[in-house]
Design a protein around this nucleic acid. Structure first.
Length: 557
RNA sequence: GCCUUCGUAGCACAAUGGAUAGUGCAGGACUCUUCUAAGGUCUUGAUGUAGGUUCGAUUCCUACCGAAGGCACCA
């Protein structure tokens, strides 16, 4: 907000008058947690009281005088040990509200990342394995940060990197071959991998056969294997695509380990100085950099995950000349990624500073970690269907024109909200009952508030009430929260933290619901025009905010 | 053993070094002849332990206790 910037400059100048030099940028000013204290606050008097040789409250008194006449600030209070609390004028708040409605689609957009080319990589399920609920986490987070960057002015591309080769494929094909399957169905695939994985662990002859099959997959030497492989791969990928559609993700690029492997091997072999040989494998010695050693090419000459990651970086670069590529990957890969990133700094110096990763937590039940290897999995599809069914039951008296679609939208909101309400890397303790209950702090709560604003807008239209802000109406807490949205989206994008948006939206929706419960909006008086306009501003902000989270915003519920 | 991350009410999460540590569930008391009750009002309840830095520490530092992840050919 410009007002906050002006306040910083005035405070810095006032500090100079008492013999303290401070840059405007270093003046602490923050949005208040509690609106009863004002719109923003500064602890500047506490921070500089020692330097000024004055008691904090005395310094606060002196500084308050210098900022009391800022345009748009209606009052400055001194509170507690010496905080300066700023309250914005109704006129300024009203001007902020006008901005919401003058260009609804743009409200909350910024230019913080303007012109940057960014490639986000997330979701990364493996063909031949299930898309389990754990994949929903990076998908929800990755999609949201992609949208936040788009909102901040960046040119964003989305990428999905999938393991279409590797031992998991061999485990699946081994079972399919054993069963004589020639045209696998989704069900066949779902059953084959867990079974193959079990056999691999329990049966040494099966393990041997699977390892050999794995080599055949890489060198494509067996036609029957090739055919089954192609069919399974295609089937898996098209199945994933159905989910992405429901989840609201559209990828620009797909990368596969079958492509990154060869590129990675070539890259690794061309840098023998960086990647020496040891015990038959090609490695990177991370100890020299405070990390640990990782194998890039194993003794069979096959690329490991690490070499493939190197190849992936090259391929990404050739597809899209990014300024930054950010990979969303699981927490348990954080240590590997540090090593891979360090190795890339040496092997791919042109990409230095352009590679980043962020790790997400697990979606777990009370019983413990989900594992598709153990077979006790819940797929993303199953979870969505469960939530959908529950949502259908909830929707008594629904006004939705397409109840089936609404149930799906509510299901997506329920699961995504659970993921996006907390900080990026944290595990999501998935309580099925809680997610299913959809009460209170939830995605459906946000959707419901949004639907309500639409209902009011429609009713106002029917009643012939024209929405119009009145600058003389005292600024309500709803209005004061509304004008914070651009500051919220900016911060969320800078920190790559969707939960900042989530928490803001839930407080906005709660404040709106409180206001709605206390106020008759269409009250038949001239004041209705302002209230309808305010409701409309809430509608726009919730809509844009939900979009940032990748949560669908149904017009009617 | 070493490295990384994390310990906030009964549960799940917030708090860019600031004020009385917020929110939702769950528990207790209310609230639909009113624009959508998937709503609203009131209420009980927390910073793992011990030090340190600071005007001020959930936040930074040290130690301890506890949890998760990683430490050579899986991803």
């Amino acid at each position: 907000m410009d007002t906050m910037h002006t306040a910083k400059e005035k405070l810095a100048a006032a500090l100079r008058d008492v013999g303290v030099s401070a840059e405007p940028a270093s003046i602490p000013i923050e949005l208040t947690e509690d609106l009863s204290r004002g719109d923003f606050a500064s602890s500047v008097a506490l921070a500089y009281s020692k330097a000024a040789g004055l008691a904090a409250r005395v310094l606060a008194e002196k500084l308050a005088g210098s900022v009391s006449s800022i345009e748009g600030v209606s009052k400055v209070d001194i509170a507690g040990p010496g905080f300066l609390n700023f309250t914005l004028s109704a006129q300024l708040v009203c001007a902020g509200l006008e901005a919401v409605r003058s260009d609804p689609d743009a409200y909350g957009k910024g230019e913080g990342q303007k012109g940057k080319k960014v490639l986000f990589e997330y979701t990364d399920p493996n063909p031949f394995k299930e898309f389990h609920i754990g994949h929903l986490v990076p998908n929800a987070l990755g999609e949201s940060v992609s949208r936040m960057y788009e909102f901040a002015g960046a040119e964003v591309k989305r990428a999905n990197y999938q393991g279409d080769v590797g031992i998991h494929v061999a485990k699946s094909l081994f079972i399919q071959l054993e069963k004589g399957i020639t045209d696998p169905t989704i069900e066949d695939l779902a059953a084959a991998y867990p079974e193959g994985s079990r056999r691999y662990d329990e049966d040494s002859s099966a393990k041997k056969a699977i390892d050999e099959l794995n080599k055949k997959i890489y060198d494509k030497s067996d036609d029957r294997v090739n055919s089954l492989y192609e069919k399974g791969r295609t089937l898996s990928l098209s199945h994933f695509e159905e989910l992405y559609k429901i989840l609201g993700t559209k990828f620009d690029y797909y990368f596969f380990e079958s492509e990154t492997g060869p590129v990675g091997i070539a890259e690794v072999r061309s840098h023998p100085d960086i990647f020496p040989e040891s015990e038959g494998a090609i490695i990177f010695r991370g100890e020299e950099h405070g990390l640990h050693t990782r194998v890039f090419i194993n003794k069979l000459g096959l690329p490991t995950y690490e070499a493939k990651e190197l190849g992936l970086a090259r391929l990404k670069r050739s597809k899209y000349p990014f300024d930054l590529t950010l990979t969303v990957t699981a927490n348990e890969q954080a240590e590997y990624f540090k090593v891979v990133m360090k190795a890339m700094e040496f092997a791919l110096p042109d990409l230095q500073g352009k590679l980043a990763f962020k790790t997400n937590g697990l979606l777990r039940f009370a019983e413990g970690k989900m594992s598709s290897r153990l077979g006790n999995i819940i797929t993303g599809e199953e979870l969505l269907n469960d939530l959908k069914e529950k949502a259908r039951g909830r929707a008594t008296d629904s006004r939705a024109e397409d109840p089936e679609m609404l149930a799906e939208h509510v299901a997506v909101a329920a699961i995504k909200y659970q993921i996006l309400k907390q900080a990026f890397g944290k595990d999501i303790i998935f309580d099925r009952e809680r997610a299913l209950s959809m009460e209170g702090d939830s995605g459906p709560y946000l959707q419901y508030a949004y639907a309500r604003t639409n209902a009011i807008a429609e009713k106002a239209k029917g009643a012939g009430v024209e929405a119009k802000f009145d600058a003389n109406t005292p600024a309500s807490d709803v209005a004061r929260l509304l004008i914070r949205f651009p500051a919220i989206t900016k911060r969320a994008a800078e920190l790559l933290e969707p939960h900042i948006v989530t928490n803001y939206l839930i407080s906005l929706a709660a404040e709106f619901n409180r206001w709605y419960a206390a106020e008759q909006i269409l009250d038949g008086t001239p004041a209705a025009a302002h209230k309808v306009a305010l409701t409309d501003a809430v509608r726009i902000t919730l809509k844009n905010g939900l979009w940032l989270l990748g949560i669908p915003a149904p017009e009617k519920m």
